[in-house]
Design a protein around this nucleic acid. Structure first.
Lengths: 350, 350
DNA sequence: GACGCGACGGAAAACATTTTCCCAAGATTC
DNA sequence: GAATCTTGGGAAAATGTTTTCCGTCGCGTC
């Protein structure tokens, strides 16, 4: 009971060779006679044998582990994706290592390097690519190294790196949202646009702007306020809007937690959503679905994104990187009731 | 560029021995002459050398990875704890592997075994212990094996296993909540009590009952409804309460997402919180802090729990298992306004 | 009855590190 | 000036698998 029985010990106890023991335990192409197999299995049981994954990894050249990098695991958006990855990984008998960059995207490259050291079979990068050229380059260099060494990489969000990608159709979703909101009668918007260099944020803003333009609505410079991609970022951006902007009837926050912060900011001034101001978000994170008023948002199937990314990686034959586009769907809630043509809101709808 | 340069290659290019290369790169007790070290480092850089963690693990006997097991990573409660673990792990240069049991606690033992195969340095079990004797036994057996092999184990929740534990003072918190609620004038409660065999759920119920008893309030059998530990579980349990129970003025859901489900159920009947019914939860998950009305709940510092668990593990000298108790604090919100002695609620407070 | 063949067991060679032991050369001490 | 110490380099063992290659045995075939 000194702790670690090795396959060698198992073989000795079972009275067979190392090769036979190995074949009996993890079932190779070669068959092992029934009684010997039985003996080996019994010995393993008796010795509390636990195969040393590190040794196996060394021999095979890769670990049956996939790494995942997220900006913040406590953000429901990413924990949703992670949940999908983990479910799919479990079905494939893979373990998942997760690293959180705490929203410093510069750290992604470090973690990719870390996963390379572990000889992980694959890495999934979730969360927005940035528009910073330098960062993208260092990340790309690290990703190349990872792939050169035999690993696979997939990204969930934008197609910015030449790897398998699950693209969230942020533009399409935000554009559809804009269409629906203008159909409801809104004309005067503010957008809480997240960090300037975050592509998801940027795409959502762009798509929204496109949708508005199709309805003949322009978005001026002051109507777009940047801020952190978090609840607090939404809160602050909203405060700025409330102080500097008048005549707004609807606020679009480029993600749900920012919308949450925005609503908090609005309420902290004694105003009401949607009576004084309507709010829409993006993502449809589950914890917010029961909020009153129901937040108008754009639904993204987060678990699905994660699952698709993992499946893509595993089915990949090393050919050209593939792209899978995932549509999103507008969910209208009471946070953006229809406006009467006159300019006063109807208070029904839910 | 065939992918993987080994330390041997680095040594060859630098014109030194394997031993020297190793010492230069990971800095052992032995010093290496400045110019040789320089040469080695340059060679490593040039070759894109990436140390093989598996080989290192094999030699050392343990991987610099900590495993973490949670019931559901998409639940903000656990992603909060995970976030704390990951932050602390990062500071220590450790990687984190996460496994989600999808609330089948019987799978915990399997994952511990999996982490044992990986030779992980430590495992953190988050989430409630169950009261099932059989499950606890198999888990304990697996934990013993893990420890026999040199790994450390910590648990976040109850002290049910003889390992380092961060105990959440569920009883104390729920009791304080009961005290506060009775002080506010509530007398007729329903408790949405979660699964029967989940200790966290059970402890919160017990503590709540104790607090009520101190105020002279009894909880009858019908006033306690079991259900899943999730939003949907809360919803269903609440529906049951609404159908079968009358005269209730306050509902205590043993966790926040259940409270969320309960509120949804209440509203789906056209009733209002807190006008028709007050609701309290447990956990104070961050996404719900901006909900209107503010949910009365018991705050648990989730990140802290995770951090403490990791620190406990690392500082552990293999002595007797230690226990660290973490208090929780009642947060009163507008979801449980003070009742007027007469029986009508004052509508202020928030 | 020699020959080929299928099935199955074993020896041994990797896989990439870390670390112990040995050794050489220069510095220090009496 | 010899003995001892210190400093730093190298050879090689050890870590636990997987897998290739080889060998053997029994059996069917011509």
């Amino acid at each position: 009971m000194e702790g670690n029985a090795t396959l060698f010990d198992v073989a000795r106890v079972a009275g067979v060779s190392l090769a036979t023991a190995s074949r009996a335990i993890n079932g190779s192409a070669r068959t092992v006679g029934a009684e010997l197999r039985e003996k080996v299995l019994r010995a393993a049981q008796e010795l509390d044998y636990s195969p040393n994954a590190a040794a196996r990894t060394m021999k095979r050249g890769h670990a049956d582990v996939v790494g995942m990098i997220v900006p913040d695991i406590a953000d429901p958006y990413f924990s949703g994706i992670a949940s999908g990855v983990m479910k799919a990984a479990d079905e494939q008998g893979l373990m998942v290592s997760i690293a959180s960059t705490r929203r410093q995207s510069s750290r992604e490259a470090e973690y990719v390097a870390g996963f390379r050291r572990q000889r992980n079979r694959a890495v999934i990068l979730a969360g927005s690519r940035t528009s910073s050229r330098a960062e993208t380059e260092t990340l790309k260099a690290e990703v190349d190294r990872f792939e050169a060494q035999g690993g696979r990489v997939a990204v969930v969000s934008q197609r910015k790196l030449p790897v398998d990608t699950v693209v969230v159709e942020n533009r399409q979703g935000a554009r559809a949202l804009a269409t629906d909101l203008t159909d409801l009668g809104y004309r005067d918007f503010a957008v809480l646009a997240g960090p300037r260099d975050l592509l998801s944020a940027k795409d959502r803003l762009d798509g929204f702007r496109t949708g508005l333009a199709e309805a003949g609505v322009e978005l001026s410079r002051e109507q777009v306020v940047n801020g952190e991609f978090s609840r607090d970022g939404g809160f602050q951006a909203m405060e700025q809007v409330l102080e500097e902007l008048g005549g707004i009837d609807c606020v679009f926050a480029v993600n749900d937690v920012m919308a949450l912060g925005a609503i908090a900011a609005i309420r902290s001034r004694g105003l009401d959503v949607p009576r004084h101001l309507s709010v829409a978000g993006f993502g449809d994170i589950s914890t917010l679905r029961d909020m009153a008023p129901r937040l108008t948002t754009v639904r993204v199937d987060l678990e699905r994104l994660g699952r698709l990314a993992l499946e893509m990686i595993l089915s990949s034959e090393g050919g050209a990187p593939r792209t899978r586009r995932e549509k999103c769907q507008v969910v209208l809630g009471a946070s953006t009731p229809g406006r009467k043509p006159v300019g006063r809101r109807s208070s029904a709808r839910g």
